[in-house]
C-alpha cells in the first residue's frame, strides 16, 4: 500500500441497481480504488440519514449513497425519497463542518459497473485531497 492517506469510505448501495452495478464492476475485473466499504440495503430509500451520521462518527472519511436512476427504482419510487432526503442531509453536514466532497449521492444502474468504478475513484481522490476527517475523535471529546 502506498504511504498516501487512504480514506475510509462507507457506501450504502441499493440491492437491485447499485449493488449489482458494483458486482458488475468486479465481474468485469475493473480495477479501482478499494476504499469504499459497501453496506447493502434493499433500497436507497432505506438509507436513514442517521446511518450517514453514524458512519462519520465511527470514523468514515466519506459516505457514498447509491441507488437506481430516478424512474428505474425496483420499488417504483423509493429513490425519489432518497433524492429528497439526501440533499437536506448534505446541507446539514455542511453546517456541521463536513466538507461537501465527503458526502455523495449517485445513481448507478445494474449495468453501470464502469460508472461505479469511476464514481469510487473520483470520490476517493476527492476525499484524499480533503484529508482525514477525524470526526470520531472530535465528537467523542466534546
Amino acid at each position: 500500500m502506498s504511504q498516501e492517506f487512504e480514506p475510509k469510505i462507507v457506501g450504502f448501495l441499493c440491492n437491485w441497481c447499485s449493488y449489482s452495478g458494483a458486482d458488475m464492476a468486479g465481474t468485469a475485473r475493473i480495477q479501482y480504488a478499494p476504499n469504499v466499504h459497501i453496506i447493502r440495503v434493499m433500497c436507497s430509500g432505506r438509507v436513514d440519514p442517521s446511518f450517514v451520521l453514524k458512519a462519520f462518527r465511527e470514523g468514515a472519511d466519506g459516505v457514498l449513497v447509491a441507488g437506481c436512476h430516478p424512474g428505474d427504482c425496483h420499488y417504483t419510487a423509493g429513490n425519489y425519497k432518497t433524492l429528497r432526503r439526501m440533499p437536506l442531509l448534505a446541507k446539514m453536514l455542511e453546517q456541521f463542518g463536513i466538507e461537501p466532497g465527503r458526502f455523495r449521492l449517485e445513481w448507478v444502474s445494474a449495468a453501470e459497473g464502469a460508472k461505479w468504478a469511476r464514481v469510487v475513484n473520483e470520490m476517493t481522490a476527492t476525499v484524499q485531497k480533503l484529508g482525514p476527517l477525524n470526526w470520531k475523535n472530535h465528537v467523542r471529546h466534546t
Binding site: V41, M42, C43, G45, R46, V47, D48, P49, H74, Y75, G78, K81, R85
Partner: peptide
C-alpha cells in the same frame, strides 16, 4: 415489498 422507505 420490503424497500424500507417507511423505516428510514
Amino acid at each position: 415489498k420490503g424497500c424500507g422507505v417507511c423505516v428510514a
